[in-house]
Design a protein around this nucleic acid. Structure first.
Length: 271
DNA sequence: CGCCAGGCCTGCACGC
DNA sequence: TGCGTGCAGGCCTGGC
C-alpha cells in the first residue's frame, strides 16, 4: 500500500498530534512482522516522550529520546491515531498508548511491515545505512542518476526502484514518473542520456510532490493518519490503466510485467 | 479455486 | 577470488 507520499502524509499527520507526548503504555498483540517486534519494546518505550517524526525513504523514524522506533508499513500497513476507546481489530498488532488518551496504532494485515528499535543515529541502522539519496533532496539530481545508471543493463524502471540508487520510489510512482518523463520503462538504464536523467529526476520530484499535496493515494483500504483518504489515485496517468487511452495521445496503454511487478506505459509517448 | 496486490530482503548464479 | 549485478523466492492476508 504505502509508497513515499503515503508515508510522508502519515508522518505529517501524526507528528503534529504526537510530538511532545509521553508514552504511558505499549501493547504488542502480534510480534510476527517481517522481523519479530523486539520483545523489550514495552520496557524501552514506556515513560519515553515522542520528540519528532522523520522519514527516510519509506521508513518512519519516531524519535523517542533514548532511541528511535523505526517503522515500515510494508504493503498493507497503516499507522494512525485512534481514541483509547477504539477497540482493536484483527490485524491491529501494536499500540503506543499516549498520556493524552490517544493511541498510535499499527494495523498490518499482510505483516510485511517492520518495527525496529535503534539506539543512537537511526540512519546507521543496517537497513538504512546504504540507502540512496532522498528523491526530494538536492543530492538527488540528474548527475547522480546518470552516475547510478552507468553500466547497468537492467531496465530504467527497476533501477529507479532500487533503494540503493534513490530511496522510496515504489511501483506506482515509478510508472507515473516515467510516463511524465516520456521514457519507456523497459529501456536499459545504461542507455539513459544525461538530459533524460535530468528530466526523469524532475518528473519523479514533480510526481511525488503532487501526490503528497493530494494526501497520498488511496488504494484498497489505505487511509491517512487522520482517517482521511488521500486522492492522488484520481490523478494516475498510467497506473492500473492498461488498455485505456493515453491522456496525451489516445493510444491504448500497455500493461506488462517487469521483474514480477506490473508496469503500465504508453507505447507511443514513451520511447 | 487461482491469481493478483502499493515492499523489500535474502540467497543464488553469473560474468567481469 | 571477489565483487557487482540480475533474478527468483519468500514473507502474509484479502479481494476479485
Amino acid at each position: 500500500m504505502p509508497e513515499l507520499p503515503e508515508v510522508e502524509t502519515t508522518r505529517r499527520g501524526l507528528e503534529q498530534r504526537v510530538a511532545g507526548q509521553k508514552i504511558t503504555g505499549v501493547i504488542v498483540r502480534d510480534r510476527r512482522l517481517r522481523q519479530p517486534v523486539p520483545r523489550r519494546l514495552p520496557a524501552l518505550l514506556t515513560g519515553a516522550t515522542i520528540k519528532s517524526l522523520a522519514r527516510r525513504g519509506k521508513y518512519l523514524l519516531i524519535d523517542c529520546g533514548g532511541g528511535t522506533l523505526i517503522v515500515h508499513l510494508g504493503m498493507s500497513g497503516r499507522l494512525w491515531l485512534v481514541d483509547e476507546a477504539t477497540p482493536a481489530l484483527k490485524h491491529d498488532h501494536l499500540d503506543l498508548v499516549l498520556a493524552g488518551g490517544m493511541i498510535v496504532r499499527l494495523r498490518d494485515p499482510r505483516r510485511f511491515g517492520l518495527v525496529l528499535w535503534q539506539r543512537g543515529d537511526p540512519l546507521l541502522h543496517p537497513l538504512l545505512a546504504r540507502m540512496g539519496p532522498e528523491p526530494l533532496s538536492r543530492e538527488f539530481d540528474g548527475i547522480a542518476l546518470y552516475r547510478a545508471t552507468r553500466n547497468r543493463s537492467a531496465a530504467i524502471k527497476q533501477v529507479v526502484m532500487d533503494a540503493h540508487v534513490v530511496a522510496g520510489i515504489g511501483n506506482i510512482y515509478a510508472n507515473e514518473a516515467l510516463f511524465r518523463a516520456r521514457i519507456n520503462p523497459g529501456i536499459a538504464a545504461r542507455r539513459m542520456t544525461r538530459a533524460r536523467c535530468t528530466t526523469l529526476v524532475e518528473k519523479i520530484r514533480e510526481t511525488l510532490i503532487a501526490a503528497i499535496d493530494a494526501g497520498g493515494s488511496s488504494l484498497r483500504d489505505y487511509v491517512g493518519s487522520n482517517g482521511m483518504a488521500g486522492s492522488f489515485q484520481n490523478n494516475f496517468l498510467v497506473y492500473d490503466r492498461a488498455g485505456k487511452p493515453c491522456f496525451a495521445c489516445g493510444t491504448p496503454l500497455r500493461g506488462i510485467r517487469q521483474s514480477q511487478r506490473s508496469t503500465f506505459y504508453c507505447p507511443c509517448c514513451q520511447r
